[in-house]
Design a protein around this nucleic acid. Structure first.
Lengths: 237, 237
DNA sequence: CCATTAGTGTGTGCTACCGTACAGACTGTT
DNA sequence: AACAGTCTGTACGGTAGCACACACTAATGG
């Protein structure tokens, strides 16, 4: 493991029992993921599990028609893929790197072995699975009833959290894929946020200028999900 | 347990290892649930777990605005609530009985105790959790890209499956709550399906007349979810 | 330094579903 | 028989996001 990184940088790892984390440590490898990189395609069994540090991994579905929609973004609060813990091997998700950054990587076999042996580790990871279930459920309601502006604010807050920076690389196109809308709709909506002075952006580079107001414009969903993660996995460091 | 019902009537129970099912049997109680009955509200810790036989349990969210949207319908393929298995106690769902019918009921404490002791039982229930995750994810994509007509077809197919009947009690209003749309939109859409001869209905009573064509009009989501349940939990009986 | 690509801006109709309003029709109760 | 409550039908303007088309500009690479 690199001396630059500490497992506490991932909240899920930080929530593990110290003795079990200690045993996991030697198997963790810090890896850098480049934006756009594909980590998994639908139904594929993964050989590695990832615990993001300052990267964001986008999970999304592809429909037969070619349309797609994002289901969740995984960052330093979680892991990919939770299927390794639930036992079903693959999931029908596609996963790509939304913003580049580092992850702790461990082989599926290693984690799986430990998961069978350490009850507390397994319990913690299952709580993460439950939090994920809540997150996705909230997404269902959110995209049904909340405006694109609200959803965009939420997405920006999420990426802001996970990238550990107010200034990240992200294109309108990538956001559109994630929110399941046209690129033009994002251009228009993001333009409004820029006019309001909440963000600035330029050719694949977004800067958060006024996070408090971004949170105000956002729907309740952001806070609900964040609070549920906190309830289940403990407070932020 | 009533002599009228057999645990194989619930696919999740049927997927358990015979010796473990045998041990669970004496704790199962057959109960009848009436439509509209509320089984849980958001954040509430449940004292019982339900394995539906011929009833359908609707899980949904309520937003601060009062709007709501359904997240999933649980029937004889599953259980409520999966939170008992994942360890986080409550979930932010509301749950009501969508169509009346019977369930196998067991106390949370009993299931929880067995869950800690029997690895195979736990593994099976975790696979169900994974299938649920897939189901909800599919819902996200579905409501983003598929028409209300398609979604209605899907919902009717689901209720058709879970109620074990072509003829069930269900109002436009209840469907609307579940799909997160206006009641009037359902009236209009259901009217088209009736004109096409796929269904008939009258004051809270719906009859499926042509299931094959209903499946044709439905989006891929129904089949995707069904197949994933089959992959994870074995074929239908 | 030029050509190509990636990223963004903008406009014009279009449609599915919304919000609201209200009417009729059936059902169970007193 | 009268009544109240439940369920369904219909109508009308409003709007958020769509599909498609195309123009512009900053970055990239030979």
């Amino acid at each position: 493991m690199s001396h630059h990184h500490n497992p506490n940088q991932n909240r899920l790892l930080a929530a593990l029992r110290p003795d079990e984390l200690q045993e996991l440590l030697p198997h963790l490898q810090v890896v850098h993921l480049k934006a756009g990189e594909q980590l998994a395609k639908s139904g594929e069994r993964l050989s590695n599990v990832y615990f993001p540090i300052d990267s964001a991994i986008a999970l999304f579905y592809r429909l037969e028609s070619g349309e797609s929609a994002g289901v969740a973004v995984v960052g330093n609060e979680g892991m990919f893929s939770v299927a390794e813990v639930l036992g079903g091997a693959a999931m029908p998700y596609w996963a790509t790197v939304e913003t580049s950054g580092h992850v702790f990587q461990v082989t599926s076999d290693t984690l799986s072995e430990m998961n069978g042996r350490m009850a507390s580790l397994r319990d913690t990871l299952l709580l993460y699975a439950q939090a994920s279930l809540t997150q996705i459920s909230q997404t269902v309601v959110c995209e049904k009833h909340h405006s694109l502006t609200q959803q965009l604010c939420q997405h920006l807050l999420l990426i802001n959290d996970k990238s550990l920076s107010d200034d990240f690389r992200l294109t309108h196109e990538a956001i559109a894929n994630m929110l399941g809308v046209r690129r033009e709709s994002i251009t228009e909506t993001a333009g409004e946020l820029r006019d309001l002075g909440l963000i600035d952006y330029n050719r694949g580079h977004i800067k958060v200028l006024n996070r408090p107001r971004l949170e105000q414009m956002c729907c309740e969903c952001y806070a609900v999900v964040r609070d549920e993660f906190t309830r289940l996995l403990g407070g932020v460091r």
